[in-house]
Amino acid sequence: MHRTRRTPPSPLPRDRATRAAAFWTRTTVAVAAAALLVLGGGGAAWAWWAISGSLNGSASAVQLLPPTGLGCTESGLLNIRLSWTAPVQTLPAGATRQYVVVAVGAGGATTEVSAADTTTVRTIAPGAITQDGTTTLAVQTRVVLPGTTWTSAVSNTVGVDRNWLFLYYLECA
């Protein structure tokens, strides 16, 4: 018996341009993927041996020395005269050493009594001391450097008395 070969039904007809566009889209994606695989897998993966060691060092800053031997003498009718010994400490080039007299208050707080000066003697007038009774005075070293100013700790202290009853005068305590 003769068997009839059945052919599958034809798909819906498609536009020739649409079929071509679909083909080139698939082709472009495939070529791009192939190119990425080829180019991306070509490099070798380098591995480094690495090792570290450490060195220790240290650095310190100078400690500014205060004056020593602060003493007090009466000078004239109302003033007192302070004198002290300069610290032995070499300064770097471009630095200037000065001294400033301060009143030392509670907790070591200092208040400047005279302007900084390079001399190691200072005359203090009653007007510079505002506190009645005994005031504690000291002197500090001040070094003026190109980029900063350093001030030392206070020297030994002396007491001065200011008395309002007698037209306010100072005397070494």
């Binding site: 480094w48 570290s52 450490s54 240290s58 650095a59 500014l64 980029g147 900063t148």
Partner: peptide
């Protein structure tokens, strides 16, 4: 050059790490 007066008399240790690779 601008180190503050408070830095007087202080010190600091420091560490330098040097690494090598082939």
């Amino acid at each position: 050059a601008g180190a503050p007066s408070a830095a007087q008399g202080t010190s600091s240790g420091f560490t330098v790490v040097i690494s090598g690779r082939n």
